[in-house]
Design a protein around this nucleic acid. Structure first.
Lengths: 189, 189
DNA sequence: AGGCCCATGTAATCTGTTACATGATTCC
DNA sequence: GGAATCATGTAACAGATTACATGGGCCT
């Protein structure tokens, strides 16, 4: 039930349209939440009906009109309430891990390929996060920024995303290497 | 739609009852998938109806009877098919990260407490995974085990879980420390 | 001409969670 | 005596995914 709060959190820094929100839930915001456009349009409508966000129409000539949303005082209060509420831990659900778990009993060629592909994706994400982090802290050192910066929430979540993707990349590469080596060993016998 | 395959993968090494499966989905298997008992009972029923697992009744004197399930040839074929199919990346959905993202605009006392609690849980899980890994490889070195061990799938997924929880723990501790320091700085002003 | 980007949704379906239900045995 | 464990489910609800729908502008 935290999609509401994820949307509110994503709208803290800038007014966004549903379409732009969807983009950021696919990119930057994706280090802490993921949602499809349909969910976001629906959630924005609900949030507006409850007064937690307000939308304003922006007329565009060359493109379809859009509605930009921002968080209201009531929305901020909801975030405050949410922050104080207890958190239930989230869980992993990862197809690739299921495949690797069963990999002693199935062919591993495709799995190795998928691991390498995933490693590449994770590496690209990690690099992107690194860039975003550098941009956020500007010319300050990380320590300095985290101590005195104005807005460090997104920085911290981005750090989490960076660590996650680096770990991901390393594990995928190592696992791929191991499974590949075992394939060649088996082929020699 | 990979709950089916996660169940099949979990049943590869031993016959389990729904109840035991639920336990392992809460523990060991939880490094790659999570599911509630109700889901597992329902999924086992479906899998049996489709012939991917077979169950046999075990009559018990002192406890209620139970049904033990094992993977059939058709189940193995399904895993094979699954391993070769393309994987869609999974996504993060984590309440705590949402709270941290918005933490510049809310009170951080509760958030710090939740981060420390989560760090402790992650640390405990990491230790548990470490123990499981040592048990799996026995007296062999990790390298040796991964090269020549019979069954390394669960070892690799457990390694993934270990890395994930260690990263989690470190990030939670660091973020808690940073937010706490900023609280005291603000209080001094 | 075909495909992608902007921009917003509805509807149907699938998955996952919460609540409820039962009942004996063992541990503290 | 009360809680936890073993053991299996049903039913209602909430949340997420997939498919469908529309339509102009821009790029190659």
């Amino acid at each position: 039930m935290a999609l509401r709060q994820a949307v509110l959190a994503a709208l803290l820094d800038e007014e966004l349209s549903g379409y732009q929100l969807a983009k950021s839930f696919d990119m930057g915001v994706a280090n802490f939440w993921h949602a499809l456009p349909q969910q976001l349009y629906a959630e924005l409508a609900k949030l507006e009906a409850e007064g937690l966000v307000t939308g304003r129409e922006v007329v565009q000539e060359t493109r379809p009109n859009k509605r930009l949303f921002k968080v209201t005082e009531a929305g901020l209060a909801e975030l405050e309430r949410f922050a104080a509420s207890s958190t239930k831990p989230s869980f992993i659900r990862e197809d690739l891990l299921v495949k690797v778990h069963a990999s002693d009993r199935t062919d591993t060629e495709q799995i190795v390929a998928q691991l390498l592909e995933r490693a590449a994706v994770a590496g690209a994400k990690a690099e992107l996060f690194g860039k975003i982090l550098r941009k956020m802290r500007g010319d300050r050192s990380e320590e300095e920024f985290l101590r005195h910066g104005e807005r460090i929430g997104p920085y911290l979540t981005c750090l989490a995303g960076l660590g996650f993707e680096q770990g991901n990349r390393d594990w995928c590469e190592r696992s791929a290497a191991i499974l590949r080596e075992r394939r060649t060993l088996r082929a020699e016998r």
